[in-house]
Design a protein around this nucleic acid. Structure first.
Lengths: 200, 200
DNA sequence: GTACATTGACTGAAAGTTTAGTCAGCAGGC
DNA sequence: GCCTGCTGACTAAACTTTCAGTCAATGTAC
């Protein structure tokens, strides 16, 4: 991949984060990437092609920065609870790259209501994420029934999306969003724990 | 308000639900409402004006159909818990008008990330809604601290928005979404109850 | 009760603007 | 000489916005 092609993709993420999927103008994108409009078409054929590739690119990037949670940075092995919190809270960082990625991803999610083409990619990513969270929860509450664990994971991820939308549109301060989510994790773990006890 | 003005607003809700905010073409809207494009500008000045009024209209409509929960239909007074559940679950109905309203509202919410003009109205509606839910919760758990009640209300409404987005894009079946939300209500009430006890 | 003036809702075509997509051609490595 | 990467002016279509003017209703002076 040439430097310019990569520049177009990172530019696409930036423009989508700034103006939304439908607000993405090919001329803006070219300007953002510092190339001509012609080059955009040379590499990506047409507008839907740009969007498709941008999606994959943004998804990859999100995987990469959430993966750093388990990275070799931790000197002593982090406990499961911290791992779970990080997996979820990493979405709430006021770092330009993360915020940009979150915004673009949220926009794609919202856009998928009107564009069936996007749903497949989105559904797969969403399911994988629920499974990851459910994995952490199951490890923390080994006695809780599997159904309840999955439901808790679905609630936590859906809550995260709802909070993220409010944060990104400035309706909810970042720290408040993080606090609400942390509390929700505590509440859900508490509930799973009590379910486990009852089953004993 | 003239019939045609109202027709334009209901048409706007329908077109936004079908094509999204950015997919709304003034010509489409005029056709949907059965009027000329000129009339749209006569009543609403410009495209942003259409969106602003449509948002208010859709918000009002949502208030109206969630308000029926407390209506005179109930022979014996419904308990607070049922009232709370209905307030939240009424958003999840597969009735065309409700679905259309939810879709359009969700779209405007998502769009507000990129359009500061829409945020004020949205913030007010969101705050009122959190307050309503908090009111029900406070009545159910009179001993819980006010801060915890508000936080629970914020979580429940944010969760609802997250679940709603998934439902509307076909990623989550309606009944599943309802079940998850009902459970979340139970969990949050349980937590508020235990907080009340500790304070005694 | 009828001629005249005024107003608000409304139309449709035309003007103006924005946007996706094309194309002829340049530069440089092989 | 030819392939790949690249340019930017250009076109056609899509879209928003304006505007001159129609029409029905309402008032009002005689």
């Amino acid at each position: 991949m040439t430097d310019n092609k990569r520049a177009i993709l990172t530019g696409a993420a930036r423009v989508i984060a700034r103006q939304g999927v439908r607000g993405l103008r090919v001329a803006d994108l070219a300007a953002e990437a510092g190339v001509s409009t012609g080059l955009v078409y040379y590499h990506f054929k047409d507008r839907p092609g740009i969007l498709r590739h941008a999606l994959a690119f943004i998804g990859d990037r999100a995987d990469r920065y959430t993966a750093t949670a388990q990275g070799p940075t931790a000197a002593h092995p982090p406990d499961r609870r911290t791992l779970l919190e990080q997996t979820l809270l990493l979405e709430f960082q006021d770092v330009p790259e993360v915020r940009e990625n979150s915004t673009a991803w949220g926009e794609l999610r919202a856009h998928s209501v009107f564009d069936p083409e996007l749903r497949e990619e989105l559904a797969a990513a969403g399911a994988a994420w629920v499974a990851e969270v459910a994995g952490h929860l199951a490890a923390l509450c080994p006695d809780a029934p599997a159904g309840a664990v999955t439901a808790a994971a679905e609630r936590l991820t859906a809550l995260l999306e709802g909070l993220s939308a409010r944060w990104l549109s400035g309706l909810l301060p970042l720290e408040h969003a993080r606090g609400l989510l942390r509390e929700a994790i505590r509440v859900e773990i508490g509930r799973l724990g009590s379910l486990g006890e009852r089953i004993d």
